[in-house]
């Protein structure tokens, strides 16, 4: 029985947004909607304080989103670190080996970026920087191709959905661009993993992830953290009680 270590405030509905997106996509309402979004996002009193029982909270505003991304990048980096220590990778085909090795490097580089960027953003106040998380990948068989690539597929698709869904909550243009620089690399990863793992030649951007409008996945932090929590991969508890929501 795995406990779900990530506590997330799930009270906000996540359904209304996608249903009404088509309606919002009318230029006439652009200015009004845009203004209200900006106003509602400007309230970022970046509190990343630990709560009384010592569990780290991601914080609010852009800091919260950065810590959220840092958590996901820590997860991906830790996973691929374990992949490269496993027997499947050691004996994988040349192409699969190279792809997984590159993914390992890229995710570690993303992780280290967030650590440095967040630390700088809070002027070195480590109490506001998500600590190094501990992971439990005992449910993954690192000797088995299907287990490794299947997990990689979920993690990369989740990364794409997470960045796509978080962009709207970012208030600092530079952070939005950096998130954009990362998400397209996550999407390149997702396509590569799907391409080598799945038989369907269309799987790289399959109908399970790209909808009839040609849009990729986008999920709000609450939904992503809930799904990540359910995997049991993250041992270290943290909360996400102040993340921006609609």
């Amino acid at each position: 029985m795995k406990k779900i270590p990530v506590k997330v405030n799930l009270q906000e509905s996540v359904n209304g947004k996608s249903n009404s997106r088509r309606q919002f996509l009318k230029v006439g309402s652009l200015a009004v909607v845009g203004t209200s979004l900006l106003l509602s996002c400007n309230n970022d009193d970046d509190n990343g304080m630990p709560d009384p029982d010592g569990v780290f909270d991601l914080g609010s505003g852009d800091l919260g989103i950065l810590n959220y991304a840092y958590a996901l990048e820590q997860l991906e980096a830790a996973f691929y670190t374990s992949v490269l220590d496993g027997s499947y990778w050691m004996s994988a085909s040349a192409e699969e080996k190279l792809i997984l090795e590159d993914l390992y490097k890229h995710e570690v580089i993303h992780r280290e970026f967030f650590k440095a960027a967040i630390t700088a953003a809070v002027n070195g106040d480590s109490s506001k920087v998500l600590p190094e998380l501990e992971f439990d990948f005992s449910s993954v068989n690192f000797s088995d191709r299907g287990s490794v690539l299947g997990t990689a597929k979920v993690l990369e698709d989740t990364g794409v959905a997470a960045y796509n869904g978080a962009g709207t909550y970012i208030t600092t243009p530079d952070y939005l661009v950096i998130a954009g620089k990362i998400v397209s690399v996550e999407a390149r990863h997702a396509a590569a993993i799907r391409s080598i793992y799945m038989d369907d030649p269309k799987a790289f951007a399959g109908d399970d992830v790209v909808d009839a409008n040609g849009l990729d996945l986008a999920k709000p932090p609450s939904e992503i953290l809930s799904a990540v929590g359910a995997t049991g991969f993250i041992k270290t508890e943290f909360t996400a009680n102040q993340l921006p929501e609609d």
Binding site: L30, C41, G165, G214
Partner: peptide, 14 residues
Amino acid sequence: GTPFLTPALQIHSV
């Protein structure tokens, strides 16, 4: 700050 950002990001990753 516009409702176009998220769909644009969704196209971008595709």
